[in-house]
Write a protein that binds this DNA or RNA. Structure first.
Length: 256
DNA sequence: ATGGCTCTCGCGGAGAGA
């Protein structure tokens, strides 16, 4: 079973590249973030033609998440309880025996901005939500977490510690989420690799390897026993002909 | 030291992203 997460930075802008990627990589389940599209405008027929069902929690202009799956999924949760004012950032479904949740975590903007405190609170809500719900043994939470888990996950290494995305306060909340029983599957598979999932559009960051690993697939312990491989699909961070890329690459995990 | 690019909305230029 192939699962994946991808912040596509606008569904309409990325639709043709997303279709190419689905056809080439053939994931069984995908969490998408930053649709920037209202739920009612989601083009279900485009994905149906490629063999995918979709569950969508959209919004005009910003945010928005969706789950694509080859087999029909059973919807479990739309939106993070108590955090509606933060926008459309969570959707969860059962796909076969796997509980699959995808999240678009708040950015926070700057340490001084009021959104930073809201980001920290949102993570506390996410942890509480994940902890209080009864979970199946096999559960995955994937998405754009907007936190660099470890200095190794930043091109700047530990020199970025203390900056937004790299603060103790953010990392403490991320660790608390893991404390509910989640494991970073890429890191579990490749303990020593430095690999990034996001590169700034500006300044040739991608080619200079100035990136961050902020797009993660977390899984419960039973999921790690099924882990066959984990990778970041850098090829799809590249422009393809006239098709522009997102600033995020897809992350892919294969389960036995 | 700063901004460097791309997206959305909507028709000019601003806000957001990370």
């Amino acid at each position: 079973m192939r699962i994946a997460t991808w912040n596509i930075n606008g569904l309409k802008a990325r639709l043709e590249l997303l279709k190419l990627w689905l056809e080439e990589r053939q994931p069984d389940v995908v969490g998408l973030q930053e649709l920037k599209t209202p739920t009612a405008e989601f083009p279900h027929e485009v994905f149906k033609a490629l063999g995918y069902h979709a569950l969508v929690h959209g919004q005009k202009s910003w945010n928005g998440v969706a789950i694509l799956s080859k087999e029909p999924a059973t919807h479990l949760q739309t939106g993070l309880p108590g955090e509606d004012e933060m926008g459309s950032r969570l959707i969860t479904a059962m796909v076969g025996d796997l509980e699959f949740s995808t999240v678009y975590c708040p950015n926070g903007k700057t340490l001084e901005h009021e959104d930073y405190g809201r980001k920290l609170k949102w993570f506390e809500s996410l942890k509480a939500h994940w902890q209080e719900k009864a979970r199946g043994d096999h559960a995955v939470m994937c998405g754009d977490f907007n936190i660099v888990p470890d200095p190794k996950d930043s091109w700047q290494g530990n020199t970025a510690d203390g900056e937004i995305f790299h603060t103790e306060a953010e990392r403490t909340r991320y660790q608390a989420l893991l404390g509910t029983g989640l494991i970073d599957l890429f890191r579990h598979h490749a303990p020593d690799d430095q690999a990034f999932s996001w590169w700034d559009y500006r300044g040739g960051a991608f080619h200079r390897r100035h990136g961050l690993r902020i797009d993660l697939i977390l899984g419960t312990s039973p999921v790690t026993t099924r882990l066959a491989s984990a990778s970041i699909d850098r090829e799809y961070r590249k422009k393809r002909g006239e098709l522009t890329a997102s600033d995020h690459a897809p992350v892919i995990v294969d389960l036995k």
